[in-house]
Structure formats: structure tokens, C-alpha cells
């Protein structure tokens, strides 16, 4: 594919070799600091350079076979699932007066209902059948960084959802509001949370939503709660309801 010269370095011109070596150095992680970020910026602006990086990645790829496998703890997957439901930029919330694009979050949430089903089947090996109408359910609502913020129990016999705060929430003047999101459905408001535990009424609609793999999520809303009937603020915590 290259017309080979007598030189050991191959036929590519010295300028081209420089560029190709910069790509290889990036792939091998040989450079630090500025050189590394310059290579990265160049790759995003220059498809030819990005292709050189891809080529080196492919060349060295078989070395990955030398790396032994280590099964990560289950908590890693749980944190990943938590992150994709509430993208990590919600963590930077205190500096952000308004949530940028809450729609994205709710799209991710919808996708997560599929995920919740997958987790259930693969990780938890819990029954996938709808919960019995009177069975109590529990959810640990975690922040995007994996910290548990609330534990919620849903008791159909009492038509109530009890939410106990277990972590620090920086609400900064706003009201944390609890929502239920049925598999493939839209968020339905349950009620506002307080600093101490809250017992909120579970309506027939909420109970019906909770039958199959529902997600509970908490968003930060203007004082008094969302006035639109849909979440408007960032999601600070979420978790899947499971039979108790």
C-alpha cells in the first residue's frame, strides 16, 4: 500500500511522519498536559488526524488481550444506571440557576424503564411479573454520583408513599418533588418532600403506575412544586421500585 523507500522509516514524508507519530504518541499516552490536549483537539477538528489515531489504536489493539479480566463490583453498574437517568451535569446544579434541558433527562428516564427491566432480569434475578396489587415496594433513590438520598416505600394497603431522607440535599430554596414514572410512561407527580420524612398519599393512578417496574424520581421545582404537572427542574435522585 505504500511505495517503500530504502529508509527504515518507510516512505511517508518527514512532515507526515511527524503527524503520524503525534497520533501514535497520543494513542500510547506518551505525552502529557498540553501535548495531549492539543492532540485531542486536533482529532476533533481534523478527520485525517482522527483516522491516524484510529489506525494506531487498531494496530496496538491486540495488546489489550494481555490485560487480565477483573469483574467489577455490582455497584458500578448501579451507578452507571443512576448516571444515565440523571446526567452528571445536574450535580453542578447550585451554580446553575436554571436546568438546561430537562427534556433530555426525561428522555433518558424513559429509556431507563427498559433498562430497569434489563437490570431486573440480569442483575437482580427478581421476578419480572407485575407486583401483586397489595405488595409493598421499596426504592433507594440515588444521586448521579451514586449517593443514596432517599429511601421510599410504597404501601398499597395504606395508599401511601413514605419517603425518608438519607443524604444531604442542597435544595437551595426550591422544593424537592417526588414523581413516579411507569415503564414507558410519563412522570406523574406524587407530592413535595420535606427535610424530615414525608408520608404522601398514593392515588389509584400512582398505585397503577407502580405495578410494573416503576421509577421514583425527585426533581427540584419552584417553591410549592411544579405548576405544569410535569417536572421542570433537574432530577437530583432516582431509583426503581422493587418488591419489599
Amino acid at each position: 500500500m505504500t511505495d517503500q523507500g530504502p529508509d527504515i522509516s518507510g516512505s511517508k514524508g518527514p512532515g507526515e511522519d511527524e503527524v503520524d507519530l503525534a497520533a501514535a504518541e497520543y494513542v500510547l499516552g506518551l505525552t502529557e498536559g498540553d501535548a495531549r490536549s492539543i492532540a485531542r483537539e486536533r482529532a476533533s477538528a481534523d478527520p485525517a488526524f482522527a483516522a491516524r489515531i484510529d489506525a494506531w489504536e487498531q494496530r496496538f489493539s491486540p495488546l489489550t488481550g494481555d490485560v487480565g479480566e477483573v469483574t467489577p463490583p455490582d455497584t458500578v453498574w448501579e451507578r452507571i444506571a443512576g448516571s444515565i437517568i440523571a446526567p452528571s451535569n445536574v450535580v453542578a446544579l447550585p451554580n446553575r440557576p436554571r436546568w438546561m434541558n430537562s427534556l433530555t433527562v426525561w428522555r433518558a428516564t424513559a429509556a431507563l424503564s427498559t433498562l430497569a427491566a434489563a437490570c431486573l432480569a440480569i442483575v437482580l434475578i427478581l421476578p419480572t411479573k407485575p407486583s401483586a396489587p397489595h405488595a409493598q415496594q421499596i426504592a433507594t433513590l440515588t444521586a448521579p454520583d451514586g449517593r443514596p438520598l432517599y429511601v421510599a416505600t410504597l404501601d398499597p394497603a395504606q395508599n401511601a408513599v413514605t419517603v425518608i431522607p438519607v443524604g444531604q440535599v442542597a435544595a437551595s430554596g426550591r422544593s424537592p418533588e417526588l414523581w413516579i414514572i411507569p415503564a414507558g410512561g410519563r412522570p406523574r407527580p406524587i407530592g413535595l418532600l420535606r427535610v424530615v420524612s414525608a408520608k404522601l398519599p398514593a392515588t389509584a393512578a400512582v398505585l397503577s403506575d407502580s405495578r410494573v417496574r416503576a421509577i421514583l424520581a425527585v426533581s427540584l421545582e419552584p417553591r410549592g412544586g411544579s405548576t405544569t404537572g410535569a417536572p421542570t427542574g433537574p432530577v437530583i435522585a432516582a431509583g426503581t421500585l422493587r418488591p419489599l
Binding site: W77, A81, I84, T114, L115, A117, C119, I122
Partner: peptide, 8 residues
């Protein structure tokens, strides 16, 4: 956007 595929 298939989250179950991410688990896979």
C-alpha cells in the same frame, strides 16, 4: 438510546 443494550 437503548439502555438495555448498554447493559448487554
Amino acid at each position: 438510546g437503548d439502555a438495555a443494550a448498554l447493559k448487554d
